[in-house]
């Protein structure tokens, strides 16, 4: 019997709580703990033929390249490995263990975020996610869901094409032998896109009952809201808090003005609503507690998340409350996968 999917809102809270530590700092204790939790949940919910293995491997390679890049370009630190001549552009100077360790922690943080995304892709009920969004975002949600499944679909197609070609005696020896793989992959991708487009067209995707002028006004307001929002994000980076707050308020008002226009008259019906069950309560509850704990520590003691081994290698500060909060995020393994 197929198990009913868990409410997507519980998974979103879990993902935010788990992604927060690797995104706000590079303290090895929370970053490594988050990686362990993300890896365990990803393994616990691993399905067959998910197609994300390539992405995880690619992220691993990127993390490894990041370590090398960090060592070669950051010439700071007191634990020197060796020194390259200064006449070498960019990489000339001392190479340090400090840079290697920081690059390694950054790579683990990157892998953690990728694992969280992979886990979400596996466990989320995308139909339920689309239904949770307001009617006005239905089109956006459909496009987002299609885009999100593009990578695993392409991965699966590549595997199938490779197996078929190997059965025909294909033996790849280098980049020049990639043709028998790439051409069918491209052709198959175009064919799938055409079929998908026809299917969406047949279901009147993108049609509207409202006047063009109303849609143009709505689109203009949304574009303006996004622009102001991006400027607000830049103000946040500059620590101009007041300006950022004003811009965010303007962006919110513009979004509200754009969305308050009457819908296009094409309503959606629901056969059944997704049930909020005990599993969702466990995951959401544990994640909410963890998120609140992390935020409290982030405000009261930011050093619990931050660490830099420059200019001298120091032992990172260990905050047991943060580690305990992250441990709570193993809750998805305690409920039925």
């Amino acid at each position: 019997m197929r198990t009913a999917p868990i409410d997507p809102r519980a998974w979103f809270i879990w993902a935010i709580a788990l992604a927060l530590p690797p995104l706000v700092g590079r303290n090895p204790f929370p970053v490594v703990t988050c990686a362990v939790v993300a890896g365990a949940v990803a393994l616990g919910y691993r399905g067959s033929g998910s197609g994300w293995g390539t992405v995880v491997r690619l992220a691993g390679w990127l993390a490894a390249v990041g370590v090398v890049f960090n060592v070669l370009t950051v010439h700071a630190g007191d634990w020197v490995i060796t020194t390259l001549p200064d006449w070498l552009p960019l990489i000339g100077g001392p190479l340090t263990w400090n840079a290697a360790l920081f690059g390694l922690v950054s790579g683990i943080a990157l892998m953690t975020v990728v694992l969280i995304g992979v886990t979400l892709t596996r466990v989320l009920d995308w139909v339920a996610v689309m239904r949770m969004l307001p009617d006005r975002f239905a089109g956006l949600a459909a496009v987002g869901a299609i885009a999100w499944t593009l990578v695993p679909q392409t991965g699966r197609a590549l595997t199938e094409i490779r197996e078929a070609q190997v059965a025909r005696g294909y033996q790849p020896r280098g980049v020049r032998d990639a043709g028998p793989l790439v051409v069918p992959l491209l052709a198959g991708g175009l064919e799938r896109a055409t079929v998908l487009g026809e299917a969406l067209e047949a279901r009147a995707f993108g049609s509207s009952a409202t006047a063009d002028a109303t849609r143009r006004r709505e689109g203009f307001l949304l574009l303006l809201a996004v622009t102001v929002g991006v400027v607000a994000a830049y103000a946040v980076m500059l620590r101009a808090v007041v300006l950022a707050a004003v811009l965010l308020a303007i962006a919110s008002i513009l979004t509200w003005l754009a969305l308050r226009t009457p819908s296009d008259g094409i309503g959606r019906t629901r056969y059944r609503r997704i049930a909020w069950d005990r599993r969702a309560t466990v995951i959401a509850g544990a994640s909410a507690v963890a998120l609140v704990g992390e935020l409290v520590v982030l405000v009261t003691s930011p050093g619990a998340f931050a660490w830099e081994p420059y200019p001298s290698m120091v032992i990172p500060v260990a905050n047991l409350l943060v580690l305990g909060c992250i441990a709570l995020l193993l809750a998805p393994l305690a409920v039925q996968p």
Partner: peptide
């Protein structure tokens, strides 16, 4: 103490994966 706690979390995570499978 932190390393001990991380080790305990690793053990619990491993047990959780085994149980889930």
């Amino acid at each position: 103490v932190a390393l001990g706690l991380v080790g305990a979390i690793v053990l619990v995570a491993g047990a959780g994966v085994w149980w889930a499978r």
